[in-house]
Structures are given as structure tokens and as C-alpha cells.
Write a protein that binds this DNA or RNA. Structure first.
Lengths: 331, 331
DNA sequence: ACGGCGACTGGAAGCGGTTCCGGTCCCGCC
DNA sequence: GGCGGGACCGGAACCGCTTCCAGTCGCCGT
């Protein structure tokens, strides 16, 4: 037991105890310059024995190398932070960057005024890089220069910033096709928020798929929440009472829709089929189980985290990950 | 549009442009010392116009005042970060500390070796304080001194560290009593992990309640996950095939249990009743809806965040928040 | 034997702020 | 009119670390 905090031991202490200069001690510990084997071992031993831990702040101040990667998520309110999808992104980021000794921070980027926060981030030398989630092309385009080389995006893409995303065009097509094949003819979609560009591909894909089958396009807007699913269903049934299938942009919304349909006495999937996107855990335990397309969040987030750590300056371009249909009872 | 990042502007630039010294500029901007009204306004105007943002690292280095509060969660693996409960804690912490201009970071504390990480945290001058989640009395007792005054705990308590928790003793008693009152006579419980002290009160409360009703105590261990619920039910039915109610330490576990029971062809609540704790959103949308006790996470987290920001040195003591039963279809 | 080169080291200069300290200057008061 | 005191300012130290630079030393080549 030697952990509780004595007066903090600095590099100076280590250096003095090892009989070398601070410069030498620093080199011995970081391996950033020539260092005689004997000296290095001695310094390391002393440091170990004294319980020396380099001050990350001082280190960041001078070296400019940050010590944590921040996951920044755009949204109207800070509530976006409370999201199962985001939690998986954060976990994965923590795992990947943790393997290299870096921590992770979480940041809400106000949709209407993201720049002050971004500017702050770009100045903050403790941040090694940023993973932008749910962000917009505008934000990506206006990224402070100093953040440019160490940011990646999950979702929206831009010429400057590498992006990673699920192939939701494909996922949506497969899911909606499934509804069509199973005999549904009046398929409505509850979409994501209009400001968010990444689900556009999904909406376009839905529209294209139903149109190709000669079916009507019926879209109502949502915002990825359960509440949006509840409200969305009411809206859908009000505008098109004969709807026989609801496709939701994400599982949370689909589950909200499912609940309301049942409350209204509609049989699912008898009267109305429901399908979602993401395959969240709750999709498996809902009653009935939710038919949905997978979203390999962990893979995506791992790729993003890896990119932010190891490719400080690659240009844009989006990497897409495949989505697969999981058929359960709801459709 | 003047946001994207020019070469960073430092206090020196502002001072020079305003025709004052760095010291004066600093005082004018932070208000930490005497400053003539005219000077202050001029400096502030120049700073504004130049888009000056103080470097949080440099500031932290010298002033010792941190700029973000970290939520540290103890667990076997980093997977603990991926948890709806934690997400709500983080959101709330972000909201509360964001209101004072502080960010939030997330940190996994390895259950078997938490001290190196804690030591790191305590040294890191960018952290204003720490909220420890799901932690143990041992960790609390061994907290580095320098973290002592700026840490609070959600869950486990200790004489040194203020703690906040749901009154789960009461919540569990009410939930289990409900099972008893509705005629259940062989009530099993799937518990939390043995290393975690905070659900102990819940387990004790369960045991006391069933014992008081003259019923047998049947406990199997879990770890708060859905998987634990699935495995737990199998274990319960193997050991006590006549079980007519399952009470789970949390909703995730309860939902796992619920799913398995249905897969096994048991009627819920006909053959076996199921109840949980937390009232997560999924509890409302499961089929059948899950009977559960509420867990006012937001209130608790807000209190914790507030404490870490505003009471840098209060002693220990635990503040408990009430839990209420929500009766749905599962029990 | 000597010039040169490379490995190694220590001194010192920062990084960008905050804060102590001493110096002006002006005000009011005796 | 002299003086104490407070408001305000600038110089400089400092937080703990990295890194540039110049200097020492041993070793090799010729």
C-alpha cells in the first residue's frame, strides 16, 4: 500500500534522486532522445520506486500531445448524450484509446452554435483528437484548422475529414424490401431530424424502394427518440389511417411506435408491421420482438478511434460498414 | 464567420494589442485582482475582437483549477461504460457541470487495479473533481489524498467521501412485498455482483422481506447485465423448479429473465411473475410491461455533480433518494 | 597522434497562463 | 503641505515538463 497521495513527486525529484538533470530524466523516461542504458534503468527504477507519474497537463502544455480523445456529439440539447447508441461509441472509443493510455471525454456540441465549443476543443492541448458523432456537413466544413487533422466523423462526411458510417442505404433497402415482400402496401417511415444529413441516405433509400414497388411515399419527421416514435405513429395514422407498416429510422423510435400501436389496439404485426434500424438490445426483448437492421456500432467506432489516433492527417472519404436484416416477430 | 483557426492568439497578443502587460490583461479578463474599469473594458474588447480563448491547459497548470469533472466507473472490464444507467449519470453530470463551463470525461476504473488510474486522476490538474460510480468501500478508503476533497460517490459510501444513492432498501422491500401480496410464495432473486457493496442493502432487504413472510430465500448472483438475467433464470429453475416469481436487481437483468421465461414457455405473470429495479425506458416497452421500482438517477447524479463542484471538502455521509413502485403487467 | 564524429549529458529556454511583489500615482485627512 | 493608504500596473517568478543547443568524452580512422 503506497498509493494515497503524498505531496506530488515531480520530475525534479526523480532527477535529483537519480543524480541526473531533469532533461536526462525526461529522455530516460520518455525515450525521446539518446540515453545510456545504465542511466535509463536507474532513472526508471527511481521513478518507479518514488511512484512518479508525469503530470499530463505540463506535458501537454509543452509537447502539444493530448492525453484524451473527445467524443463530440451534435444536437439541440445535452440530452443527446443520453443515448444507447452513443454509449456504445464511447465504450469502444474508451477501449481503443485506453489501450494506448489515453482517456476519453464527452462533449455536447450545441447544434445552433457549435463553433465556440469547437474552438475551445481545438485549443485544448489535452485533447489528442476528436470523434464527431451525428454531426453535419456544415460543422465539418467549419472545423477549426487545428482540429482538422485530428478529427474524424461518424456519420456525416466531408472532403477534409475521414468518415465512418453504416451502409444504411443498403440496410434500409433490405428492411423495407422485406416489408414489401411480406405483403405490406402502405408503408410509412418515421425519419430522423431534418438537420442531420446522415440519415438522408436512409430516407432516400426508403423512398426509392417503395416507389420501385409502386407504393406511396409516406414520411413523418422524428428525432431518433422513443417519444418521436410515439408522436410519429399518431401523425401517421392521422394522415394515412390505412397504413399497414411503419418503418422507423432507429429502434428507439420503432419501439415507441410499437408501444403506441398496441395501446391503440392495433395488432402487430397483424394489422401493422413495424421495423427499425440498429438492433439495440431492447429490440430483442420487446413484445413482439422487433425486426430491424443491424448497425455495427462497435466496428465503426473502433475504426474511428483508430483513425483519430493513428492517421493524423489523412483526407476525407467515407468508409461504410455493412448492415444485415434481423427478422423477428414484428414484421 | 471568423471561427476557423488562425495561429492561436495568446494572452501576450491581447496584452500587447491593448497596450498593457500580461499580468494586467489576465486580471482584466479573470477579474482576479484590481483592474481599472477603462482598462478592463479595453482588454475585454480586444480579447473579444481577437477571438482570444484562454488555454485551459496553461491555466490549469498554474492555477490548479481543473476544467472537467470525470465520471469514474469501477468494473471488471471497460464494458461497464456501455450502460444505460451510466449514460444517464453522464448526461446529467454534463448538464450540471456544463452550466459552469466545465466538461465531463469518462474513466473506467479496473476493479482489480484501480489505484494507478486513480493516482493518475488525482495528478491530472485538468480534472476539477470526480464522481465515482459503482465503486467499492475499499476504493473509497484508498482514495489518493489529493482527490479526497473533490470526489463524491454514487452508491458506495465511506466516512470521507459524500455519497448519493437511491434508497434501494425501501424500493426492494416495496417491490418484493408487492410480489408477496399478489400471492407469490417462492420468490427468487437475481442479485448484483458480489464485489459491489451498494446492492447489499437490496439483497438484505429482499431476504428480510421474504423471511418475514415465512418464505424461502433463493438468491443467485448476477452482474447487472441482460445476460445475467438469462443465465440467472436457468440457474433458478434448475435449483428451484417451482419458483413462481423472479425479482432482479435491475431492469436489464429482469428483462433478460423475462425473455428466457417466455422462451421456455412459461406464462408471465401467469406462471412466474417478474419484477425489476430502475424503471429504464425499455421496461415500459417490453412485453409484458415490467413491474419495477423507480431509480431517480437524474436527481442523484445532479446532486452528486453539484456536490463535487460546490462542496470541495465536506466529509462523508450518504444522501438517499426515494424509490417508488411502478406496477405493470409482469407482476 | 590527432581530427572528427557520434553518443550522451546538463543548462536554459520556453509552453501560456496566474500571482506575488514592489513601484506609481492619486486621493483624502490630519 | 506632508503623509498614509489604496487602486492600479508591470516585472518576474513559477507551475512541471520537453526540447534545443552547446559542451564533454570516448572511439575510430588515417
Amino acid at each position: 500500500m503506497d498509493h494515497p497521495g503524498r505531496p506530488p513527486v515531480t520530475l525534479e525529484h526523480v532527477a535529483r534522486a537519480a543524480g541526473v538533470s531533469r532533461a536526462t530524466a525526461s529522455r530516460a523516461l520518455t525515450g525521446s532522445g539518446p540515453s545510456a542504458a545504465g542511466t535509463r534503468e536507474r532513472v526508471q527504477a527511481v521513478a518507479e520506486q518514488l511512484g512518479y507519474v508525469a503530470d499530463p497537463v505540463a506535458r501537454a502544455l509543452v509537447s502539444g500531445r493530448g492525453t484524451r480523445v473527445v467524443v463530440a456529439v451534435t444536437g439541440m440539447t445535452a440530452d443527446v448524450l443520453d443515448d444507447a447508441y452513443l454509449a456504445r461509441v464511447v465504450t469502444t472509443t474508451a477501449r481503443v484509446s485506453g489501450a494506448e493510455g489515453l482517456g476519453v471525454a464527452l462533449q455536447w456540441l450545441p447544434l445552433d452554435r457549435p463553433w465556440p465549443t469547437l474552438e475551445q476543443l481545438s485549443r485544448d492541448r489535452t485533447v489528442a483528437g476528436a470523434v464527431l458523432v451525428n454531426t453535419t456537413a456544415a460543422v465539418l466544413a467549419g472545423l477549426p484548422r487545428s482540429l482538422r487533422g485530428r478529427a474524424v466523423s461518424i456519420g456525416a462526411s466531408s472532403p477534409d475529414v475521414p468518415a465512418f458510417d453504416v451502409d444504411n442505404g443498403h440496410g434500409v433497402r433490405v428492411a423495407v424490401s422485406h416489408l414489401v415482400r411480406s405483403g405490406r402496401r402502405r408503408i410509412a417511415m418515421i425519419t430522423g431530424p431534418a438537420w442531420l444529413s446522415c440519415p438522408e441516405a436512409g430516407e432516400a433509400s426508403y423512398a426509392a424502394t417503395v416507389r420501385a414497388a409502386g407504393l406511396p411515399v409516406r414520411m413523418v419527421p422524428g428525432d431518433f427518440t422513443v417519444a418521436a416514435g410515439r408522436a410519429g405513429v399518431h401523425e401517421v395514422l392521422r394522415r394515412w389511417p390505412d397504413t399497414d407498416a411503419v418503418y422507423a429510422v432507429c429502434d428507439d423510435t420503432a419501439l415507441g411506435a410499437l408501444a403506441v400501436l398496441q395501446e391503440l389496439g392495433r395488432q402487430v404485426p397483424g394489422d401493422v408491421a413495424v421495423a427499425g434500424f440498429d438492433d439495440v438490445p431492447a429490440a430483442a426483448s420487446s413484445g413482439p420482438g422487433l425486426t430491424t437492421a443491424t448497425h455495427p456500432v462497435e466496428q465503426i467506432a473502433a475504426a474511428a478511434a483508430h483513425a483519430v489516433l493513428h492517421r493524423p492527417d489523412r483526407g476525407g472519404g467515407v468508409t461504410r460498414f455493412p448492415s444485415e436484416l434481423v427478422v423477428r416477430a414484428s414484421a
